[in-house]
């Protein structure tokens, strides 16, 4: 057993899952926004990065790690809600290109602002758990207290989000507003408020992902979420952008694929891992991307 745990194959699975859960979180946050407002939020990563910076400055002032997490999430949610109100709401009913371009512009503003305020040097949030890998009779196991924390937190958040949507009144209203906004309004549901709450939730989930990233080896810098956003988008796209489960599975898949390309093929082509998976997914099942929305508006 112990030798099994320390085999390189198992190492890579742990490593892949550890990054995979981050991608899953980002993908999930993209799906939440997509379902409610049909906007692919290109600033999702940057918003999370920005919120984490604000949380981190509180750590600098001597606040504990968990307060930093809570502050980051809270700031992320406020930022998400305000973004929906100010930048997205005026664009409902406009061509779908408009919100894309606006969010790309917002991404640029946030990254430039972050490097203006906090410089572009990498910082690390003091991790709450040790990053040192466990050993088993002298064999290194690719697991550390931090990796376990990262996975537990990410999976916990996913379960929480799933429970919220599935079992609460708020979740039911969120789902209804996304599925049938007009009918929901006829039933007295405040759809506008639901869209804002959807963005807040999504930005909160994104902020958790960014905090985990900033606590690990990768660290925090203004563009640190760019690559993670791309991986998260690919994960969400594989799952069809509409399916939370698909997004989570897609995230894990990409995490594993990257790890295995890195380990068994060539680290040089690792950046292409996500794209290769997306292309293959498109070739195998192009309609998989569109899931239920098979019919086109004429």
């Amino acid at each position: 057993m112990s030798v099994f745990l320390s085999s390189s194959f198992i190492h890579n699975i742990f490593g892949g899952l550890a990054t995979g859960v981050i991608y899953s979180l980002v993908a999930l946050s993209l799906v939440i926004i997509w379902q409610s407002t049909h906007v692919l939020n290109f600033a999702q990563g940057a918003m999370a990065m920005f919120a984490t910076y604000i949380g981190m400055t509180e750590i600098d002032r001597g606040v504990g790690y968990w307060w930093c997490v809570i502050i980051s999430v809270a700031v992320g949610m406020i930022l998400g809600g305000m973004t929906e109100r100010v930048l997205i709401r005026p664009l409902y009913g406009k061509p779908e290109i408009n919100p894309i371009v606006v969010m790309v512009g917002f991404l640029g503003v946030l990254e430039a602002l972050a490097s203006a305020i906090w410089t572009s040097t990498t910082r690390n949030i003091t991790e709450p758990f040790s990053q040192v890998y466990y050993q088993d009779h002298g064999h290194l196991i690719f697991l550390s207290a931090f990796v376990i924390f990262q996975m537990v937190l990410a999976i916990g958040i996913m379960l929480l989000v799933a429970a919220l949507f599935r079992f609460t009144k708020l979740g039911l209203q969120l789902r209804a507003s996304a599925l049938a906004p007009e009918v929901s309004r006829l039933l007295g549901i405040r759809v506008g408020r639901m869209l804002t709450i959807g963005w807040m939730l999504s930005a909160g989930v994104g902020a958790i992902a960014a905090v985990i990233v900033a606590s690990g080896n990768f660290g925090l810098f203004p563009t640190n979420m760019d690559g993670i956003f791309v991986a998260g988008f690919i994960a969400a796209a594989i799952g069809g952008l509409e399916s939370p489960m698909g997004a989570v599975a897609g995230g894990l898949l990409i995490g594993l694929a990257e790890q295995f390309i890195l380990a068994y093929w060539s680290p040089n082509v690792a950046p292409l891992g996500g794209i290769i998976i997306l292309v293959v997914a498109l070739m195998v099942r192009p309609q998989g991307l569109f899931t239920k929305r098979m019919s086109r508006r004429v």
């Binding site: 039911l172 209203q173 049938a180 009918v183 006829l186 039933l187 007295g188 549901i189």
Partner: peptide, 26 residues
């Protein structure tokens, strides 16, 4: 109460969820 053209039943939800939606605002 407005029952729209084409009934407006939300297909992805269950019968009970649809009814709960109706009761939420009352």
């Amino acid at each position: 109460g407005h029952v729209p053209e084409g009934r407006g039943v939300i297909e992805e939800l269950t019968v009970e969820e649809n009814l709960r939606l109706g009761a939420l605002s009352a």
